[in-house]
Simulated assay, not measured.
Amino acid sequence: MKGFKDFLMQGNVIDLAVGVVIGSAFTALITALVDNVIQPIINVFGGQNVDGLAFTITNESTTVDVGALLSAVIAFLITAAVVYFVFVVPVSTARAADRRRRGLGPEEDEVSEDIALLTEIRDALVARDNDSAPRA
């Protein structure tokens, strides 16, 4: 039981729980915005049709609601933009600043092993091409 208690008290689990709660509240907010503001604006372009941009193929059960799809796309884009600009950008900036403050940033004089290997391959190919080039 002690291990389970330690797991639950870790910061990651608590952060995840807070994120889920805030995410569901934010989803309700965006849904209300889209349903009550954006959907009526989209429905204006549907003309005299009270369903907005929806059309019926054969009967009421075969209604295709293009306006609802557009609203869902707009809701997704708004949610993604808010998550990116409110959470991702500040956290990335803070982490980069913390890494710089601790001196953990990438050394500019050091080259990773894969980059060094690719550089050697490039140089060998250039040398091979220069050796096989016809001389005038």
Rank of each mutant, 00 (worst) to 15 (best):
R102V: 00
R99E: 15
F7L: 13
P40E: 03
E60L: 14
F87A: 11
V88N: 02
N12T: 08
V18N: 07
F87L: 13
E60T: 15
V82S: 00
A75D: 06
L16A: 05
A72F: 12
A25N: 02
V64E: 04
R100M: 11
A32C: 03
L8F: 13
A116E: 15
D65Y: 10
G47S: 07
S112C: 06
A54C: 09
R100H: 10
Y84K: 10
A54K: 08
A25Y: 08
G105I: 10
R128S: 09
I42W: 01
F55E: 05
N12Y: 01
A97V: 10
M1A: 12
R122C: 04
E110M: 08
D123P: 09
L77I: 13
D129S: 06
A124F: 06
R135V: 14
T79P: 00
I14G: 00
I121A: 05
A94E: 06
D123C: 07
L70F: 15
N36W: 08
V89L: 07
A136M: 05
A81G: 00
L70C: 11
R128H: 06
D114Q: 10
A124S: 14
A75K: 12
V44W: 07
V44M: 13
T31G: 09
N49D: 15
L104N: 08
T56R: 15
D109Y: 05
P90W: 01
T62Q: 13
E60D: 15
D65H: 12
T62C: 09
A96N: 14
D15G: 14
L8D: 03
A28I: 10
M9P: 03
Q39N: 13
L8A: 09
I41C: 00
M1I: 03
G52V: 04
G23C: 05
N130Y: 05
T119L: 02
I38Q: 04
L69G: 15
S24E: 14
D123G: 09
S61I: 07
L104W: 06
R95K: 14
N12L: 01
F4D: 07
R95A: 11
V66P: 03
V73N: 11
I22P: 01
F85A: 09
N36V: 04
D109I: 04
I38M: 03
I42D: 01
F55K: 03
V20E: 03
A94L: 14
M1W: 04
G52P: 09
M1C: 08
S71K: 06
A127G: 03
R99I: 12
E110R: 12
D35K: 13
T58G: 07
A133C: 09
G19D: 06
G105H: 08
M9A: 15
V126L: 07
S92M: 13
I30D: 04
G105C: 02
V83W: 00
V50K: 08
F4N: 09
V64F: 12
D6K: 12
V64I: 15
V111T: 11
E107R: 11
P134C: 06
A32Q: 05
G47I: 02
N59A: 13
Q10A: 13
G23L: 03
D129Y: 01
L70A: 11
F45D: 02
